[in-house]
Computed example of a mutant assay.
Amino acid sequence: MNHRLGDTRRALPLGLGQVVVHGPLRLYYMMRNRVRLYRMAHTPRVWVAQDVPRVVVKLFLFGVLIGPRWRNLRCMLRGLADGIRGCEGEAPADLRG
């Protein structure tokens, strides 16, 4: 199985390092599935507490700094909403197009 971590890497401003860039659809699945993990009894609450700030950072990075910003933000917010609703399986057709 061939697997890559992200589509590419991009340098952050002010020499803050690099970020792995994912496509909008991948961002949808990441957000949806993390919310689903938060709700599982066996997920350590410490991890959830550490991960929530990462969600905020990802929303900022991919919604403001890394394009396609609008599509990234739309997919991430939809992923969070679908995770709260308990959706699973393939992403909605309107995000895949």
Rank of each mutant, 00 (worst) to 15 (best):
L12A: 11
V56D: 06
P13Q: 02
V35S: 00
R9P: 00
L25R: 12
M1G: 09
G17R: 13
P92C: 08
V20C: 09
M40D: 14
R78D: 01
A41S: 10
F60C: 04
V55R: 12
F62D: 06
A11E: 15
V52G: 02
P53I: 08
V57I: 03
M31W: 04
A91I: 06
W70P: 02
D82E: 11
L25Q: 12
G89N: 06
G83K: 07
I66T: 13
Q50M: 08
V48H: 09
R54T: 14
L27G: 07
R10P: 02
A93G: 07
L16S: 07
A91V: 07
T8A: 00
R32P: 05
R32I: 00
L25T: 12
A93W: 12
D94Y: 11
R39M: 09
M30W: 10
P68C: 00
A81V: 03
D82F: 06
V35C: 05
G86Y: 10
L65S: 15
V55S: 11
P13Y: 07
H22D: 09
R45Y: 04
V48Y: 06
H22C: 05
G15N: 07
V19H: 04
K58D: 15
R69W: 12
R45H: 08
M30T: 08
N2Y: 03
V46G: 01
R10C: 11
L16D: 01
R71A: 03
Y28C: 03
G63A: 05
R74D: 04
L14Q: 08
P44H: 07
V46N: 02
L77M: 00
H42M: 09
R10F: 08
R85V: 01
G83Y: 05
G67D: 11
C75G: 10
V56Q: 06
A49F: 13
L59F: 12
L80I: 13
M1D: 07
L59D: 05
N72T: 01
H3C: 08
G23E: 14
H22L: 09
W47H: 02
Q18D: 13
R39K: 08
C75Y: 12
R54V: 10
Y29T: 00
R4P: 00
R26F: 02
Q18W: 13
L37T: 02
L25P: 13
R39E: 08
M30Q: 12
P13K: 02
L25M: 14
